[in-house]
Design a protein around this nucleic acid. Structure first.
Lengths: 184, 184
DNA sequence: TTGCAATATATAATAATTGATATATAAAAC
DNA sequence: GTTTTATATATCAATTATTATATATTGCAA
């Protein structure tokens, strides 16, 4: 849906292959946008048909050749229009954990608590990643002058990840505490 | 993906049509799980082929006939297995707003601020809904003894919505305040 | 010296989801 | 009184996304 804009966005920095784009997404936007390798490849193909990117083959030895994409002027326009258009809706979320919880009345509280405690560990690890690794990566990018404006925006998205994980852990703590009293 | 379990879950309460299920989802799980009418109908058909639900036609006057689905024993088993299985991963999120923000370095801060302020209004309305309407609906369901256990779990998912919106508004406030200083 | 994980590229098949469309009535708004 | 909105049902085409598979090399460990 918005993956095409993400790809166009990344290609404004420099021409890249599908493989490169996958690595870059995992490193930078995975907090709020992700895609599988296969989806990236098929979306790039579609973008080329729409003339928003063009590709050329870069021969490699001992590896499959790289198909490197770069953004066209049409692509820049399309991306610019998307960016300029204000977002007027809230994205609906999907949270499998909450769905499971919603229908878990038949389960023993202990079974639910096991999942919640496990989830807390996962979210704590994620929180730490945003506070250390991610923060440092953005700091380094922002050090070069031509990336400073971007890095400032990237930091706001990192901060979102941090606040989100803090919120999630708080909710888990509340729910665990609450549920521990349900046996009585 | 998990929609089939949501449908099975709702059908444990009582037999229902695709239309009923859509209404019920919008009212209860839309905070963390949603689906379009068309997806609900096609998923129900698939569930019937897999013999996890069975349907019969209820004739109506002046309206298309209702196709009412009920859960089978197979369906109950499948649902039970899914519920019992602890969730070991964190769901990747997708947030178009953050994606746009990430690539917005070329935009004027004022353009970004317009979107952020607009989003704040939307999230505030959502927050209020969780604190009033949703809370009241769950309270009423929980009043009947046989729904008390369910209502307790539903309340935890409502609370998630509340904390989520509070977090989102906080992040928006922080980001807006930060960005208002960028012009200088 | 075999076996497995990681690097690097990509396609095909399948599943999930959305968007557009269709029918028909009742009620409310203009 | 005519248009629009809401109720009530559902199908089909199109898009988006995931899973499985394919090729080929490098490097490390058993």
């Amino acid at each position: 849906m918005s993956l095409k804009y993400a790809l166009l966005g990344f290609l404004t920095y420099q021409p890249q292959s599908g493989y490169d784009l996958k690595q870059l997404m995992d490193l930078s936007t995975s907090n709020f946008w992700h895609a599988k390798q296969s989806q990236i490849y098929t979306t790039l193909k579609k973008l080329e048909i729409e003339e928003q990117v063009i590709s050329h083959i870069e021969p490699q030895e001992n590896r499959p050749n790289r198909r490197v994409y770069e953004i066209t002027e049409t692509g820049e326009t399309v991306l610019g229009e998307w960016l300029a258009q204000p977002l007027m809706v809230i994205e609906p979320r999907k949270e499998t954990l909450l769905l499971k919880l919603f229908f878990s009345a038949r389960l023993k509280p202990e079974a639910i608590l096991t999942t919640l405690r496990l989830q807390k560990n996962l979210h704590q690890a994620d929180l730490e990643k945003y506070q250390t690794t991610t923060k440092e990566v953005i700091r380094q990018f922002g050090a070069s002058a031509d990336m400073a404006a971007d890095a400032r925006l990237w930091e706001t998205t990192r901060r979102y990840g941090e606040l989100y994980e803090e919120m999630y852990i708080r909710w888990l703590d509340e729910t665990i505490k609450d549920m521990e009293g349900w046996g009585e």
